[in-house]
Amino acid sequence: MSNRDLSMLTPKELARIEREIARKHIGKFPWLAVTAGIGVFIGWLALWPLVLMNIIPAWAGFIAATIFAIIGYLPSHEAQHDIIARPGSRLRWLNELVGHVSTVPLALPFDLARVTHREHHLHTNHPELDPDHGSSASGPLMAIWTAIQNVQPKGRGGHNAYSRTLKRLGRKDVLISSALYRVAWFLTLFALAWTGHAIEAAALWWLPHHVGYIYIQYYLSWAPHHPANETARYRHTRSFRAALGNIGSLGMQYHIVHHLHPRIPFLRTPEAYWEMKPVLEAQGARVEDL
């Protein structure tokens, strides 16, 4: 179907075509996400004896742990959207397992990520209701600086924005479990540090947590929604050409497809994007950069 044909269709008809394309990509079991999620966790765990026994230096462990922390968010993200298995299904336990273990290197509680991420989808770019709106910034350098500021104790975004969201939603259960998760994380770091393993703990968990949070805020929150001033379905998220490419940007170049159809597995979003692009253009979506 040519672009000219599409321009004659109503938004409803375009949405129907879009849904038909999306349906082709939904429902495939995301084997790679499951393997990567569990693999990242096991790989990260393996770094501890490797670094503690001086088989690899702490700096190499830091690089590997940071990569694991960043990559681990993606399988967890699939689990947040129940892409691995829906509630009540036979493999639901696997969805929950992947969700929980893949963000351990990032020290991010899965339940917190799931609840706040859903709010992000429901209220994308809303200054009060989108928990990720704190990552908005005027340009790439400001986005990095804002991401650093967000992880400060009194930061506007990050965990403070997530706490506000959970309070607004009345999810005290998640608020308390997330707070306990954070306390347990700090106590583990303290115990490692006071038993003579502070450098290893910093290299394998503390620094990867911070670098990972900043990287994820930049590529998952800031870049796909910049300038974050529109809230309409086809306007709040964009496709973009990342300086680090699609792999370096964690596949976020095609994030618009994820926002329109969150049940499409992450690895199928590029294919779905190229199939949908003429329809998205006709809908007035922000797809001009890619």
Partner: peptide, 18 residues
């Protein structure tokens, strides 16, 4: 008290070991 607790619990031994 987060920053002070973190300073005592983690940064002190980290700086010492560095």
């Amino acid at each position: 008290l987060g920053p002070m607790i973190f300073g005592l619990g983690f940064l002190t031994p980290l700086a010492a070991q560095l």
